[in-house]
Amino acid sequence: MADLTQTAPARTTRSPIRWASVLDHAILIAGAALMIVPLLMMLQMSTIPDAQVMQHGPSLQIGGEFWDNLRKALFQSMSFSGETTGLTMFRNSLILGLGFAIGKIVVAMLAAYGIVYFRLRFATLAFWLIFTTLLLPLEVRIVPSYEITQKLGLLNSWTGLIVPLIASATATFFFRQYFMSVPEELVEAARIDGAGPVRFFIDILVPLSRTMIAAMFIIMFVYGWNQYLWPLMVSTQEDKVTLVQGIKQITQSLEGNHIPEYGRSNVLALLAVLPPVLVVLFFQRWFVKGLTESDK
């Protein structure tokens, strides 16, 4: 598919009435506002005193509480045991996001390389075993997955958190498609140049796939960072709680107290939202390419 970031092709005709164009812009601005306003609202609420939020909710006023809320969100403990600060949760989210993205890409690239570039006796079987996993998301087998992770003694470990999430072949499928599109002559030239399978992979195929790896990395990082249900089940210890998972404690903390800590909660929520958003915005071109090409 076309690259979204390219500029739109110039129209050959222009509507004589400019009102149509005004309407177009109005619709787009409304859409953009629909997306961005909730985020700005959270930001605004973190700058004013909690008592004020409790009375009136979000407003247009910008207060001076933000840095204090940020400090509390990052360094003050959330829980009774006093271990989990926003910073630890941030670190945990980072471990989950990066661990998942890197793990998935490495496993997927190796498998796709094996499938595409080798004559395998049981190739068809391996192919079906791997690509059947595309059919069923983790959520439908969540309870038995939990039981097995428990049986293996992997609850509350990074392995138990990350590896079961890798058990689907989305990235493998993507890399397979990509490798299939790499010109045949490249591997032939490399063979004549004396490169064996390992050398070809490292010297040619991996550097060639840089853009695709980047695109996959962005999608997978966002996916890993945003995991909720699985961490909720397998990471029950406080020192393993991620930001997205921690939103549960945050919402609960908004009830019961005399004055709920709206400011701190909103900063934590922003901390949970911003890193994947920034990654997507920063690498927009690669991300869109990866996303829209992964379905082919």
């Binding site: 490495v106 499938i115 595409v116 570039y117 004559r119 075993l129 689907s168 072949a169 493998t172 045949e184």
Partner: peptide, 30 residues
């Protein structure tokens, strides 16, 4: 599969091993 695929016997199995063991353990078993 590519026209000029490599003939190596054990390497592809090694390459597929991580993926296959993870999906057997955490997909087919559950």
């Amino acid at each position: 599969m590519k026209r000029a695929a490599f003939d190596n016997r054990w390497l592809p199995i090694l390459l597929l091993l991580p993926q296959l063991s993870i999906i057997c353990l955490f997909f087919y078993w559950p």
